[in-house]
Lab assay of single mutants.
Amino acid sequence: KELVLALYDYQEKSPREVTMKKGDILTLLNSTNKDWWKVEVNGRQGAVPAAYVKKL
């Protein structure tokens, strides 16, 4: 499985998103959308802005 690093804090704004903190390591589930990537963090799945994460 592919991992990404959170470059910034992000507070979810809808139920389809997830909150992450700078430095979090997230499991990347889907990166086909260039703006929003689906990730899993702390057992929750949701979208985060692609510009806020970097593939490891």
Rank of each mutant, 00 (worst) to 15 (best):
K1Q: 13
K1T: 13
K1G: 11
K1C: 15
K1M: 13
K1N: 11
K1H: 13
K1A: 12
K1E: 11
K1L: 13
E2P: 11
E2H: 12
E2T: 13
E2N: 12
L3G: 03
L3C: 14
L3Q: 11
L3P: 03
L3D: 03
L3T: 09
L3A: 07
V4F: 06
V4Q: 01
V4I: 07
V4R: 01
V4L: 12
V4S: 03
L5T: 08
L5W: 07
L5Q: 11
L5N: 01
L5V: 15
L5A: 06
L5F: 10
L5P: 00
A6E: 01
A6C: 13
A6K: 00
A6I: 03
A6V: 10
L7W: 04
L7S: 02
L7A: 04
L7V: 08
L7N: 02
L7E: 04
Y8K: 13
Y8M: 12
Y8C: 15
Y8V: 13
Y8S: 08
Y8N: 09
D9Y: 04
D9Q: 02
D9E: 05
D9P: 06
D9S: 08
D9G: 05
D9V: 02
D9L: 02
Y10T: 00
Y10L: 01
Y10M: 00
Y10W: 10
Y10V: 01
Y10S: 01
Q11K: 12
Q11V: 14
Q11S: 12
Q11L: 13
Q11R: 10
Q11P: 06
Q11F: 14
Q11H: 13
Q11N: 14
E12P: 14
E12L: 08
E12D: 05
E12G: 15
E12Y: 05
K13N: 11
K13D: 07
K13H: 09
S14E: 08
S14L: 07
S14R: 07
S14C: 10
S14H: 10
S14N: 13
S14A: 08
S14M: 06
S14T: 12
S14D: 10
P15E: 12
P15I: 11
P15D: 13
P15Y: 10
P15N: 11
P15G: 10
P15T: 10
P15S: 12
R16T: 14
R16A: 14
R16G: 15
R16Y: 14
R16S: 14
R16P: 06
R16N: 15
E17A: 06
E17Q: 10
E17W: 04
E17R: 05
E17G: 14
E17N: 05
E17M: 06
E17V: 05
V18T: 05
V18L: 13
V18F: 15
V18G: 02
T19E: 03
T19K: 03
T19Q: 05
T19C: 05
T19L: 03
T19G: 09
T19R: 06
M20V: 11
M20R: 01
M20P: 00
M20N: 00
M20E: 00
K21Y: 09
K21L: 08
K21G: 04
K21S: 09
K21H: 11
K21I: 08
K21R: 13
K21W: 08
K22A: 13
K22I: 06
K22L: 05
K22T: 07
K22W: 03
K22C: 07
K22P: 03
G23C: 09
G23V: 00
G23I: 02
G23K: 01
G23W: 05
G23A: 02
D24C: 07
D24K: 02
D24V: 04
D24G: 03
I25P: 00
I25D: 00
I25C: 08
I25E: 03
I25A: 02
L26H: 03
L26F: 07
L26N: 01
L26C: 10
L26Q: 01
L26A: 09
L26E: 01
T27K: 11
T27R: 11
T27N: 08
T27L: 14
L28R: 00
L28T: 00
L28G: 01
L28Y: 02
L28K: 00
L29D: 02
L29M: 08
L29P: 00
L29V: 12
L29R: 04
L29H: 06
L29Y: 04
L29W: 05
N30Q: 10
N30G: 08
N30I: 08
N30A: 11
N30T: 08
N30H: 08
N30V: 09
S31C: 13
S31D: 15
S31G: 12
S31Y: 09
S31K: 09
S31H: 09
S31W: 09
S31Q: 12
T32D: 15
T32G: 11
T32E: 14
N33R: 09
N33M: 09
N33L: 08
N33C: 12
N33V: 05
K34A: 13
K34Q: 11
K34V: 11
K34W: 07
K34I: 10
K34H: 12
K34E: 12
D35P: 02
D35G: 08
D35E: 12
D35K: 12
D35L: 13
D35F: 15
D35V: 13
W36F: 08
W36K: 02
W36T: 04
W36E: 05
W37E: 02
W37D: 01
W37V: 09
W37P: 02
K38A: 12
K38C: 15
K38L: 15
K38I: 15
K38R: 13
K38H: 15
K38V: 15
V39K: 00
V39G: 00
V39N: 00
V39Y: 00
V39H: 00
E40C: 11
E40R: 06
E40T: 06
E40I: 09
E40L: 08
E40W: 06
E40K: 06
V41L: 15
V41H: 14
V41R: 12
V41A: 12
V41Y: 11
V41M: 13
N42D: 13
N42C: 12
N42G: 12
N42I: 04
N42S: 09
N42E: 10
N42H: 11
N42M: 09
N42L: 08
N42P: 05
N42R: 11
N42W: 06
G43S: 06
G43Q: 06
G43N: 07
G43A: 05
G43F: 05
G43L: 04
G43W: 03
R44Q: 08
R44H: 08
R44C: 07
R44N: 06
Q45G: 07
Q45T: 13
Q45V: 15
Q45Y: 09
Q45M: 11
G46W: 06
G46I: 10
G46C: 05
G46L: 11
G46E: 04
G46N: 01
G46H: 05
A47E: 15
A47D: 15
A47Q: 14
A47L: 15
A47V: 15
A47Y: 15
V48P: 01
V48T: 02
V48C: 04
V48I: 09
V48E: 01
V48Q: 00
V48S: 01
V48Y: 00
P49H: 03
P49L: 05
P49Q: 02
P49F: 03
P49T: 02
P49M: 03
P49S: 01
A50G: 05
A50L: 02
A50D: 04
A50V: 06
A51K: 14
A51E: 13
A51L: 10
A51F: 09
Y52P: 04
Y52A: 14
Y52S: 14
Y52K: 10
Y52L: 15
Y52R: 08
Y52H: 09
Y52D: 06
Y52I: 10
Y52N: 08
V53L: 15
V53A: 02
V53W: 01
V53S: 00
V53R: 00
V53K: 02
K54E: 14
K54I: 14
K54D: 09
K54F: 08
K54L: 12
K54H: 11
K55M: 12
K55R: 13
K55F: 11
K55I: 14
K55C: 12
L56H: 06
L56I: 14
L56P: 03
L56F: 10
L56C: 14
L56D: 02
